[in-house]
Amino acid sequence: MSEALALLAWGDGGWGDEMVFGAFVTLQVATLAFALGIVIGTGGAAVKLSKVRGVPLLGDLYTTLIRGVPDLITIYIIFFGGGQVAMGVAQLFGYTGYIEFDALTTGVLALGIISGAYSTEVIRGAVLAVPKGQIEAAKAAGMSTSLRFRRILVPQAARYALPGLGNVWQLTLKDTSLISVVGLVEIMRQAFVASGSTKEPFTFFVTAAVLYLALTSLSNKVFDKAEIWANRGVRRA
């Protein structure tokens, strides 16, 4: 036990600081990807709820593809193919240089696209949960489209979406471990490197598990608090 603790010491002698730094990278990727996912999800929900014929189909295609294909495959496709796509786009603007995504960009982009698919469903459901009569009432009160959107739809949909988005966050947080396969030094990669050089894999993977447990438990608490705050004006039976 004491040997294991020595391995996890802070500073040059141990891997404690490296592991904690890895946890910060994990948190960073998860946060950026989750935010990107909400942006994509909002757009996706708008596409899925569109009244123009054929447009919702595009949204269905996106969510079905992402949710039916392993996340690891999505990550590899973006890692190996994202650069080519970016170069193609850049060439349209006259840039002919070589573009390759680094591990962090790949991670944020891939996890953003993956969590975006789940967020799309959550946000779509939340928008549908806002009673239609409220929008009609806002129209009757003479509110413009943007005002209705800002004052009536968004605040209420956000409240309905919160529990679902909490689940998406947990998912994204755990999915960050997959980014280690393309070389991003987050918790998993750091644990792998450390166990390779110390020959004590169990110690480091347990440490990784504990760090993930801490992150998920902590964010659970934050989301619970946020839910209580968001529902402070709601009367429950």
């Binding site: 755990k174 999915d175 960050t176 894999p201």
Partner: peptide, 15 residues
């Protein structure tokens, strides 16, 4: 609460 990848590595490399 932990990623599946951690569980796989714990069993394959860790044990």
């Amino acid at each position: 609460s932990t990623p599946l990848l951690v569980q796989i590595f714990l069993i394959y490399y860790g044990l």
